[in-house]
Design a protein around this nucleic acid. Structure first.
Length: 398
DNA sequence: GTCAATTCACATGAAAGAGACCACGGTCTAGTG
DNA sequence: CTAGACCGTGGTCTCTTTCATGTGAATTGACGA
């Protein structure tokens, strides 16, 4: 088959997707199923804003994919619609985004940019940015609603002074006020912050429970209607998709991604519809891509450590401990002319790899024989060789 | 046999340093009229 | 005279080192039955 014929066939073939945008994170559906109660609560709390009064700050907790962001955006959009004149300034910031808002400075800079100020990515003192932001807010003299998504990430990295400063800002503003809505995945984090910031931030608290399988099905059905042609999905696919995600922790985002990838795979195979086994294939592909992506974007040192773990795990049965990894890593460094890091650092890197889900690390005490991390690979056997290969390329090993 | 003390091999925390990046202000240089 | 090049200073940010302190159970050893 010639290439031109292939492309010709490709064009002739009808795509499975009618509208792919419904799978994107920014997509905001008409209605948000199973979140009426939460949305109403948020709306009630924030309603005073419409009259220019200062509502309570809100702290919203819920695991990933429970619709926090979406519900919040929905409320904001509705408020905007009701208002018509831009009497309120809304700002949405995702604190997890690397190099955007994951430090105090960057958050302030990002907020100031929303007011049209040019803030360099570095070089300015933080309190200078504070002043710029403060003046900008004062000059706009509008109520300000800031939604801080993944606020736990920010606080974990930079401490709670950010929140404290932001809330304290309110006391000094004359012509405006700031309302903060914090979205968090982590419930315990709120207990570890400065009590003053805490009481100020969590004047109102909301919890988004995980979706159950039935609810995820509803969400999927709603999107599928728009996304695919009729009868593209075999019976049972939605159910399976929902079941997979509900098994985790009711992550709707994951369910949608699963469905999208399944669709893409089926389309690539020139299939007329999406069968159940494409869900499995999609799950596999997502996981494989995720692992490969993580491993190839890690810093050299982490890669080197991961390579050591893989080498040890394939050579030797049983569990691996920090000390062994460090020894192997040091010898590997000699080969690659990498400057070996201290064991202290290795300890942290192992914890990071654990967080990323590439390895399982458990701290165990071997009694008289010390205390250590017990490490094993969290990667399916089928992917190990693949990962190993990419690591060898990255590290320029033979 | 029992029980507290000891001990190992790290984990975990805090603080501080190195090096990259950048803004700002002042000084120097070269081009212009 | 002025625009741009070129410093020095001071700031953030990431990754790392240094120093200090914490930790949980196997082992040890004293003790009494």
């Amino acid at each position: 088959m010639t290439l031109s014929k292939f492309f010709g066939d490709y064009l002739k073939k009808e795509p499975l997707f009618l509208n792919k945008t419904v799978f994107q994170g920014a997509y905001l559906p008409e209605t948000i199923p199973h979140r009426d109660e939460q949305i109403n609560q948020i709306a009630k709390i924030l309603a005073p804003l419409l009259r220019g009064d200062k509502p309570s700050n809100i702290f919203i907790y819920g695991k990933t994919g429970t619709g926090k962001t979406m519900s919040m955006k929905y409320v904001v959009k509705s408020m905007k619609d009701a208002l018509k004149d831009n009497a309120i300034k809304f700002i949405y910031v995702n604190c997890k985004l690397k190099r955007v808002a994951d430090t105090e400075y960057r958050l302030m800079a990002q907020l100031a940019r929303e007011f049209g100020k040019e803030i360099p990515s570095t070089g300015l003192p933080t309190d200078e940015v504070y002043k710029i932001l403060f003046n900008a807010i004062e000059k706009e003299s509008k109520p300000l609603l800031i939604v801080l998504d993944e606020i736990d990430q920010l606080v974990r990295k930079t401490g709670d002074t950010v929140l404290y400063n932001l809330t304290r800002c309110n006391e000094e503003l004359k012509n405006a006020h700031i309302t903060i809505v914090g979205l968090s995945n982590d419930m315990v984090f709120i207990d570890n912050i400065d009590p003053r910031a805490k009481s100020s931030l969590s004047e109102e608290e909301l919890i988004f429970p995980p979706y159950n399988a039935i609810q995820i099905q509803d969400i999927l059905k709603q999107r599928v209607k728009i996304a695919f042609k009729k009868n593209t999905l075999d019976p049972g696919t939605i159910e399976k998709c929902a079941a997979y995600s509900a098994r985790e922790h009711g992550d709707a985002r994951r369910a949608l991604e699963l469905l999208r990838v399944a669709g893409e795979l089926a389309e690539r195979d020139a299939k007329e519809n999406i069968t159940i086994d494409y869900i499995d294939k999609a799950e596999e592909k997502i996981e494989r891509d995720r692992l490969l992506d993580i491993t190839s974007t890690q810093p050299k040192q982490s890669q080197c450590i991961l390579y050591s773990i893989i080498a040890l795990a394939t050579n030797k049965k049983g569990n691996i401990f920090t000390g062994e990894i460090y020894e192997h890593y040091k010898s590997l460094c000699k080969k690659t002319s990498l400057r070996p890091l201290t064991q202290r650092r290795i300890s942290d890197v192992l914890a990071e790899l654990d967080m990323l889900g590439i390895i399982n690390a458990k701290i165990i005490s071997k009694g008289r024989y010390g205390r250590s991390r017990e490490v094993s690979l969290a990667v399916p056997n089928s992917s190990i060789t693949n990962i190993k290969k990419t690591l060898e390329e990255e590290l320029a090993l033979t």
